[in-house]
Simulated scan of single mutants.
Amino acid sequence: MTVTDVPDGAAANEPNGSGRDLRIDERTGAVLTEHAAWNEEHRHLAEEALSALRESGALRLLVPDRVGGDELTFADMVANVREAALYDGAAAWVLMVLVGHSWMLGSMTEELQDEVYGVDPDTIVPGSLAPVGAATECDGGWLIDGRWPFTSGAVWGNWFLLGSQVPAPGERPRLLHVVIPREDIEIDDNWYAIGLRGTGSCDVVANQAFVPTHRLIDSGDLLGGRSPWSSRHRTSVYRTPILPGLAVHVAATALGLARAGLDDAADRFGVQDDRYMGSPKSRRPGLHMRLAEANTEVRSAELLIEDTIGLLRQAADGTDSKQLRAHAKYQGSYAIELCRRALDRVTTAAGGRAAFDGSRLQQAFRDVTMASQHQVADLDTVGEAYGRTRLGMDPGAHPL
């Protein structure tokens, strides 16, 4: 039995109680597979791959209903991103980012939502959430300057969601998240990385970009769940805590990649011979144990994601707390680490041929390794916060 044969219960604890709506079918998957090598070579998604995601309806999973989106659930997001990762990690990552940003824009002003999605609910909104830009107040809004790294899908962006801060010498800066149109953004094509090569996660630059007030939100209101706009939707999904929610988004990609990589490893182990021993690799007890442990790690990650979705639903429905957020964020982050460990375990035993480009196992290993570097997967900091709550302490200064 391969990992993809294992039944899962991701619908059991999802927000809002609806069933999973799987948009990434075999037809879409075939297009993603066909262009996976092109994506890697050119370092961004092929237009055909992006079009396949658009035509599937997956881009609008968490776009608000009020602007023509589907406003579904985190469980639907996990199912679709996970499925896309079975075909191509880069496409799954870009899908995850775009769905995540449309979800976050649901907490911003209705005027902005109308402006971005009113004409096209499949509008592409890449971005970088780290507050590395500088914001200066001016008449009617703000002037934004800065360079933002890791802007996945940038080449196809119509709008960009970017983190910024208001300089305040000697004081803690005010943090803002702003939305800037493509015409005010420059793209620096500098994405050369060990994994997720096809995501086009290059730097973007803004120089004195004017942002009217309706296109920004105080980061404390956005991340702290205090946005007045998040409650003006037909569901509670936009009241889901942002940072623990983002951990689940990243974990969804890691989960699909781990499934694909382990299936490829099992296929390899089943047909390869040990050239020195003169016997099939499939007879090695060590490989049996590696596959058993790796499969169990991935299944454990799946169950952790499922449980975390339930925690996020509680928070969205009103039972929110720092303790719950620390718990949820840690579980989502730990699920990513479990997927990384599983792929590392089998890649070590897969032999030299698995190291060549074109190996699904090699690509999954690289992609999950890169995904595990995301800020939400920093187990040291989020582990400290969660561990403190287990001792009855405040989680501390770690952003939750």
Rank of each mutant, 00 (worst) to 15 (best):
G68K: 13
G68W: 13
G68I: 15
G69T: 13
D70N: 13
D70F: 15
D70E: 14
E71H: 14
E71G: 15
E71I: 15
L72Y: 11
L72I: 13
L72T: 12
L72F: 15
L72V: 13
T73R: 14
T73C: 15
T73A: 14
T73I: 13
F74A: 15
F74S: 14
F74V: 15
F74Y: 15
F74K: 15
A75T: 12
D76F: 12
D76A: 10
M77L: 00
M77F: 02
M77Q: 05
M77Y: 04
M77A: 01
M77E: 02
V78R: 01
V78K: 02
A79L: 12
N80K: 09
N80V: 03
V81Q: 01
V81W: 04
V81A: 01
V81N: 02
R82N: 01
R82H: 06
R82L: 04
R82W: 03
R82S: 02
E83Y: 07
E83R: 14
E83V: 13
E83P: 09
A84R: 08
A84T: 09
A84N: 09
A85S: 03
L86W: 12
L86F: 12
L86D: 09
D88L: 07
D88T: 05
A90T: 11
A92M: 07
A92E: 04
W93I: 05
V94K: 11
V94G: 11
V94W: 08
L95M: 03
M96A: 03
M96T: 05
V97Y: 07
V97N: 04
V97M: 07
L98D: 05
L98T: 08
V99G: 06
V99L: 06
G100L: 11
H101A: 12
H101R: 11
H101E: 09
M104F: 12
M104D: 14
M104H: 13
M104Y: 10
M104W: 11
L105A: 11
L105N: 08
L105S: 12
S107D: 14
M108V: 11
T109F: 08
T109N: 09
E110I: 09
E111H: 03
L112M: 02
L112S: 02
Q113S: 13
Q113C: 15
Q113I: 12
D114V: 08
E115H: 11
E115I: 06
E115D: 09
E115F: 09
V116S: 02
V116P: 04
V116I: 01
V116T: 02
Y117C: 06
Y117E: 06
G118R: 11
G118L: 10
V119E: 03
V119H: 04
V119Q: 01
V119T: 05
D120E: 00
D120W: 05
P121H: 12
P121D: 12
P121N: 13
P121Q: 12
P121S: 11
D122W: 07
D122Q: 05
T123C: 10
I124D: 05
I124K: 07
I124V: 12
I124N: 07
I124W: 04
I124S: 09
V125Q: 05
G127V: 03
S128T: 09
S128K: 01
L129T: 10
L129P: 06
L129A: 06
L129G: 07
P131M: 08
V132K: 00
V132N: 00
V132F: 00
G133F: 03
G133T: 04
A134G: 07
E137S: 06
E137D: 05
E137K: 06
C138P: 07
C138E: 04
C138T: 10
G140W: 00
G140A: 00
G141N: 01
W142D: 02
W142L: 03
L143E: 00
